[in-house]
Simulated scan of single mutants.
Amino acid sequence: MRRVREEPGWLRGAPPPRWARLAPAVALFVLVCAQRVTPGDVEFGYFLAGLPPVAAFAYGAAGTAVFAGVVLVLLGLPGIGIAHARGSDLATVAAIGLLSVVVAWVRKRRDAQLISVRTVAEAAQLAVLPPVPERVGQVRCSGLYRAAQRGTLVGGDLYDVRVGPFGVRAVVGDVQGHGLAAVGTVASLLGAFREGVLDDAELTAVAARLDRRLLADAAGSAVEHAELFATAVLLEFPPGLDLVRIVSCGHPPPLLLRGFVVSELDVEPGPPLGLGLAGPAPSQPTELPVRPEDRVLLYTDGVTEARDAAGNFYPLAARVPVLATDPVGLAQAVWRDLASFTGGGPRDDVALLVLSPDGDPDGAHRTP
């Protein structure tokens, strides 16, 4: 499973770029050379006082102190001819240099704290929503997850593929809201799904379990009249059978890619989860035949509701046959095409999951 993540930028925990580290030294050299070729009545030397604050953004306290010391030497030695500084001027420059050293020290400590917090946050998010392996049981898997909120790995969409005593089961869903506010609901639903994979003989019972989980969470919420709901589609590849069972809970229907022909699976629609409408025994799942070379594409509405500059929706079903031959894989190809279509990527969470029944439980891959 390919997870798209956004790396932190400069001043947000990432190391400074090379140009930022070179800038103070280059500015120092340019100012000294400019002063050397300039008539004596024009002074550029006092611009050197701005170098320590600039260095504080790219260097630590020691590196900044070096720049501050060099500036004081250049301004304080009259024989060098950089500037004619008085004692009060040197005191001001020294104070600026000292303040810059303090700023650099504070920045380095903050960067270390940001890296630590980010590492812990990423570990926690990956524990909630770990990447799906390339193969689960007799099903090959690939996919992509992209959270809408900057700097996060998990949003309001969810996916999982698990093997249990009743076959390989998968879920793709979209909870109310998006971003970090929805992560708790995502974790709750995934926990219920993983229990259902092991305990519930019927796929519809798994859907009912998810429905009860959301109802219980809404009842225990501190917010009065809180409502939690989610759309989801659940799949089951039973062992020894060339078919897939599907239960849809208000979610967009999966797409079946057979060769280069794409069709929308005719699935009996059901109510979203969390409304208490699934009940103890929902309607029977839809059963459809599948072949080893088939690919089933599950997605969230962050894909199909993405718009271009003219307001047109992304035509997923029409684009899939064109993207199916991309060597990067179908899920990654869809994401690249979607980002190009929207001019940078949609503003909603996106989850894509491609499942292909192999029919070989020992793990030998077949060529599609």
Results as ranks from 00 to 15, higher is better:
residue 185 T to F: 09
residue 185 T to R: 01
residue 185 T to P: 08
residue 185 T to W: 01
residue 185 T to G: 08
residue 186 V to S: 08
residue 186 V to M: 05
residue 186 V to G: 12
residue 187 A to E: 13
residue 188 S to Y: 00
residue 188 S to I: 05
residue 189 L to I: 11
residue 189 L to P: 07
residue 189 L to K: 06
residue 189 L to S: 07
residue 189 L to A: 06
residue 190 L to M: 02
residue 190 L to E: 09
residue 190 L to R: 15
residue 191 G to L: 06
residue 191 G to P: 06
residue 192 A to V: 08
residue 192 A to T: 10
residue 192 A to W: 01
residue 192 A to K: 02
residue 192 A to D: 02
residue 193 F to N: 12
residue 193 F to S: 09
residue 194 R to Q: 10
residue 194 R to N: 06
residue 194 R to S: 04
residue 194 R to H: 12
residue 196 G to N: 04
residue 196 G to R: 01
residue 197 V to D: 09
residue 197 V to Q: 02
residue 198 L to K: 13
residue 199 D to Q: 14
residue 199 D to P: 00
residue 199 D to Y: 03
residue 200 D to L: 03
residue 200 D to W: 01
residue 200 D to E: 15
residue 201 A to I: 10
residue 202 E to D: 15
residue 203 L to Y: 08
residue 203 L to N: 09
residue 204 T to Y: 00
residue 205 A to H: 14
residue 206 V to Y: 02
residue 206 V to T: 15
residue 206 V to P: 05
residue 208 A to C: 00
residue 209 R to E: 02
residue 209 R to Q: 08
residue 210 L to C: 11
residue 210 L to V: 10
residue 210 L to F: 11
residue 211 D to V: 07
residue 211 D to W: 07
residue 212 R to N: 02
residue 212 R to T: 09
residue 213 R to I: 02
residue 213 R to K: 12
residue 213 R to V: 10
residue 213 R to E: 15
residue 214 L to P: 09
residue 214 L to N: 03
residue 215 L to K: 01
residue 215 L to W: 00
residue 215 L to C: 09
residue 215 L to V: 09
residue 216 A to H: 13
residue 216 A to P: 00
residue 219 A to Q: 11
residue 219 A to K: 00
residue 220 G to F: 05
residue 220 G to R: 05
residue 221 S to L: 10
residue 221 S to Y: 09
residue 221 S to H: 12
residue 223 V to F: 03
residue 223 V to P: 00
residue 223 V to Q: 13
residue 223 V to Y: 00
residue 223 V to K: 05
residue 224 E to W: 01
residue 224 E to R: 14
residue 225 H to S: 12
residue 226 A to K: 06
residue 226 A to T: 04
residue 226 A to C: 10
residue 227 E to S: 14
residue 229 F to D: 04
residue 230 A to N: 06
residue 230 A to F: 05
residue 230 A to E: 07
residue 231 T to A: 14
residue 232 A to F: 11
residue 232 A to L: 12
residue 233 V to M: 00
residue 233 V to R: 00
residue 234 L to R: 07
residue 234 L to Q: 05
residue 235 L to D: 08
residue 235 L to W: 01
residue 237 F to K: 09
residue 237 F to A: 08
residue 237 F to Y: 15
residue 237 F to R: 08
residue 238 P to H: 10
residue 239 P to D: 13
residue 239 P to T: 04
residue 240 G to T: 07
residue 240 G to N: 05
residue 241 L to K: 11
residue 242 D to Y: 00
residue 243 L to N: 03
residue 244 V to K: 03
residue 245 R to N: 13
residue 245 R to K: 10
residue 246 I to W: 01
residue 247 V to L: 07
residue 247 V to D: 02
residue 247 V to E: 06
residue 247 V to G: 01
residue 248 S to M: 05
residue 248 S to A: 13
residue 249 C to L: 07
residue 249 C to T: 07
residue 250 G to W: 11
residue 250 G to V: 11
residue 250 G to S: 11
residue 251 H to M: 06
residue 251 H to G: 11
residue 251 H to F: 06
residue 251 H to R: 04
residue 251 H to L: 04
residue 253 P to F: 02
residue 253 P to A: 14
residue 253 P to M: 09
residue 253 P to C: 04
residue 253 P to Y: 02
residue 254 P to A: 12
residue 254 P to D: 13
residue 254 P to I: 10
residue 255 L to T: 11
residue 255 L to C: 10
residue 255 L to G: 09
residue 256 L to A: 14
residue 256 L to D: 13
residue 257 L to I: 11
residue 257 L to A: 12
residue 258 R to T: 15
residue 258 R to S: 15
residue 259 G to D: 05
residue 260 F to K: 12
residue 260 F to A: 15
residue 260 F to G: 13
residue 260 F to N: 14
